[in-house]
Write a protein that binds this DNA or RNA. Structure first.
Length: 283
DNA sequence: CTCCAGGCGCCTT
DNA sequence: AAGGCGCATGGA
């Protein structure tokens, strides 16, 4: 099978930071290139002077599935201009300039973050890899590439037993994932519909799922829904906010939540991603 | 060995 | 309202 490639013209795009900053869990680095699966497309990405070089397994008539995912049309300068001008944030931006938010598929994003609670990122990646290998549909890959799989659909997961999910090492998260898959497969929740709703409505709807609280809902709103004000507060962000913004006195979780929701403005989710990556990689 | 991980739900004060 | 605890599993 012959590969096809294009160059996506874009500047100020830090591919490695973007694909390895804990927002997506399936990208694999090989030297300077990254391989992954988006929808049902295997793709290899590499940063070049003119932008990003993308290689696929099959000819592609329309590349929007990729440019939407990578958000190459976003004006990063305008995003960063909307940040509050405080020293910690400027420092985080300087440390990983070009970090972007992806626009992921809602179901893969929701399922991935349902599997993320009290897990290290390496373990989340392992669980998701097992789930895809065992229960996802194989996708075409170029000659010589290892097999690759689409993320299992809600229907595919809804057809499994809890034991098959537990065999993918997800532990107590298995029944929650199964419930969510069934609700979606049966039409009880439409992940495309909440994307057209208000931030608060969409958040409330996601949180009706067992195993989805505020943090996971915020991740899905931000990484798949395009609600850029969503600000997921996890253990890393708590550490970052405590150390960078409240160095003298200990701030309660309540205080940190309130600060996160009010200080960072309409692009707070982007700010969060810079602080998260900064805290996770620089210290 | 112990501690904790991109949390959540439920139980006590 | 705020804090404590168990939950599966496996790095560190």
């Amino acid at each position: 099978m012959s590969a096809v490639e294009i160059i996506i013209p874009v500047q100020d795009y830090h591919l490695a930071a973007t694909l390895d900053s804990g927002q997506a869990f399936r990208w694999q680095r090989r030297n300077t290139a990254w391989t992954g699966v988006i929808h049902r497309h295997w793709v290899r990405l590499e940063a070049v002077d003119a932008g990003l070089r993308a290689t696929t397994a099959d000819p592609v008539p329309d590349w929007r599935w990729l440019t939407d995912y990578l958000q190459t049309g976003v004006d990063l300068t305008a995003v960063i201009k909307a940040f509050p001008e405080d020293a910690p944030l400027q420092q985080a931006v300087a440390a990983c300039r070009g970090l972007r938010l992806l626009r992921q598929e809602p179901w893969e994003c929701l399922a991935s973050f349902m599997l993320s609670s009290t897990k290290q990122i390496v373990q989340i990646r392992q669980i998701i890899a097992l789930l895809c290998e065992r229960h996802g549909t194989a996708v075409p890959v170029p000659d010589g590439e290892p097999p690759a799989f689409a993320f299992p659909t809600p229907e595919q997961i809804a057809g499994l037993g809890e034991a098959q999910l537990r065999a993918c090492k997800m532990g107590f998260r298995a029944p929650n994932l199964l419930d969510a898959a069934r609700r979606i497969a049966e039409g009880g929740l439409d992940l495309e519909r909440w994307r057209t709703r208000s931030h608060a409505e969409a958040r409330a709807e996601l949180m009706q799922l067992r195993g989805v609280g505020g943090k996971i809902a915020d991740c899905v709103l931000l990484f798949a829904g395009g609600f850029n004000a969503a600000f997921p507060v996890d253990v890393w962000i708590k550490k970052a906010l405590q150390e960078l913004y409240f160095p003298r006195r200990r701030a309660s979780d309540k205080r940190l939540q309130h600060f996160a929701a009010t200080h960072f403005g309409p692009q707070g989710g982007y700010a969060q991603q810079y602080l998260f990556h900064y805290r996770r990689t620089m210290k």
